[in-house]
Design a binder for these strands. Structure first.
Lengths: 318, 318
DNA sequence: TATGATTACTAAATCGAATTAGTGCAACCA
DNA sequence: TGGTTGCACTAATTCGATTTAGTAATCATA
């Protein structure tokens, strides 16, 4: 109740100087000359009073808060994005910033109004990037402040397909989630990258297999697909959920995995190892991408090492 | 660059009144008498200029921002918590607030300093609640602003065990994640609730089965457990990850599920349906708990309907 | 017709920090 | 001795919205 907050004025009074001087000392303003004695008195007073700068006042003065906004499309979740978020959060915290995650799910308040409300230092709009990348065949993101996340997605898709060709497969399909699943946009992006990757390593354009939610429908879809494309010997899945769904359908259809059809997932969830057969998947070091993104938006040098390449977690399904 | 922000002053100038009047109109201050004509001029001017109130200035004046902080322990994720967060986010957005999620993972900056920095309207500290609930056997949370989330966890654990007894099981065990998995604290809470629930429905205290990460170790742990407690015919798992791990171990050990041992999960992840056998699990309407939490912290009436009870997603494993 | 109440507003202070424009004072150079 | 420069600080303004105290003008009442 009565806990009034310790302001700069209090520190000033306690150390016998003006608030301006306190500000100069605490912000290490180099253009101002402050005697070491005063500097010392101010810092100890601040410490003893437990002074914490009031970010809101600071933000009002500076015109921008120390908040970074991450806008995600609705319904997009997964271990990769979680790790990305964590990397972002940690790196931002390391520089005194706070990550605000805005899920597209929010009914009211568009992103623009949230931005006007919070005055964030920067905005990482993955929903925009996803859209961007899906639209043009050039896939050149306008705002490249995502730490290379989308570029990474392309590279990782290449890793996924390459693993299949290295295992001897030459006729490869891509498995996608249903269009109404909320992943539709990202699915188009990934499909685009898969086609690019296939062209790069000299494969024919991969046919696509969309797997419906409903188990019976899914079984039918898979059976039809195998009838239409009998030569396909391996499937690169959009993510592990799609891969595991496919695995369970194939189990029901008595199709041997990887004997008759190999399956590789994406984004290596832990559950994958409990599937039968255990799911081979592509693991992404998304956390380092998050870290890069943080450094990018804060205007810092990106880390010298390039982001870790995707690694294939080899289990049983390929 | 030159895009100066539209302030209240601009609106005042455009409508020929003072900034104070603009504030009164825009905030519907009932203590002040404003003529309908003026009221109209101000609102249209605000609309035409595209005036968006500057939340930071507002926050400085009011001493608190329209931000609500959700503090989560490190490494705690899952569909339940995701849905909880979504419910919270949506309901807060509906009342002009923004949710800031703070993952315990952040290396620098304690929760206290983040609070001092952001001056949030409210803090929902689930890490604290988890600790609280785990400590005393009374499990009476000090801050009950979580919308009944922890209480719900207790109720849902009861649902989980009850489903097993209704299926005819009388000797039930609890499966837990390893202590070093980051879930340790929550695992203790859930175990506490499981014991309470068992007592309530007249079961003996359930033995616990901790399942190590490593597959070989896990297999050994399960075999030893079955040797020590041969009468146990059903296992209530901490979450679906543990349940699915158990399922894959049992598959390797040639133990029939649910024939020789029934398994029920918790928090119904989608992957569960792709396990063999498909995992029966407890689904929680966490979103409505998030919504309740939002209303609680904003000081609004909670919705009249009680939170939806947990439902059992019956598949094959029980 | 003077007094009081009500209406419809405005001026100015406030929140807490950052910053620009000064103000004394001492040292230094010619 | 007068002028310049450097040092160590302070006063006062600013960011944008809220709110208290106050002021004209109108209306009602005695």
């Amino acid at each position: 109740m009565g806990e009034r907050r310790v302001t700069m004025r209090d520190v000033a009074k306690a150390s016998g100087v003006s608030p301006a001087t306190v500000s100069f000392v605490l912000n290490n303003v180099t253009e101002q000359h402050i005697s070491p004695a005063t500097r010392d008195r101010v810092t100890t007073a601040a410490r003893e009073l437990g002074y914490v700068p009031h970010a809101i006042a600071k933000a009002l003065r500076e015109g921008t808060s120390r908040i970074v906004l991450l806008a995600l499309p609705a319904g997009i979740r997964g271990p990769g994005l979680d790790a990305y978020t964590r990397g972002l959060d940690d790196e931002l915290a390391r520089h005194g910033h706070v990550l605000l995650v805005r899920h597209g799910s929010s009914l009211h308040g568009t992103l623009a109004s949230v931005i006007a409300t919070v005055s964030p230092r920067a905005v990482i709009d993955l929903s925009g990037l996803y859209r961007e990348a899906a639209d043009g065949p050039a896939a050149e993101p306008v705002t490249s402040n995502d730490g290379g996340w989308i570029d990474g997605l392309a590279a990782h898709t290449l890793v996924q397909l390459r693993h299949l060709t290295r295992a001897g497969h030459t006729s490869i399909a891509v498995a996608l989630p249903p269009d109404d699943s909320g992943w539709a946009r990202l699915a188009r992006v990934r499909l685009h990258f898969a086609r690019e990757a296939a062209a790069r390593i000299g494969l024919a354009e991969p046919p696509t297999l969309t797997i419906p939610e409903d188990a019976a429908e899914a079984a039918r879809a898979v059976r039809d697909f195998r009838r239409e494309f009998p030569s396909v010997s391996a499937v690169a899945a959009f993510d592990d959920a799609v891969a595991m769904h496919l695995l369970s359908v194939l189990h029901g259809l008595d199709v041997a995995v990887p004997g008759q059809l190999a399956v590789i997932g994406f984004d290596a969830v832990e559950y994958g190892s409990f599937a039968t057969p255990a799911l081979t998947s592509v693991h992404i070091d998304a956390q380092s991408y998050g870290q890069r993104a943080a450094r990018t938006v804060l205007g810092l040098e990106p880390p010298s090492e390039p982001p870790a390449p995707a690694t294939v977690i080899v289990r049983e399904s390929v």
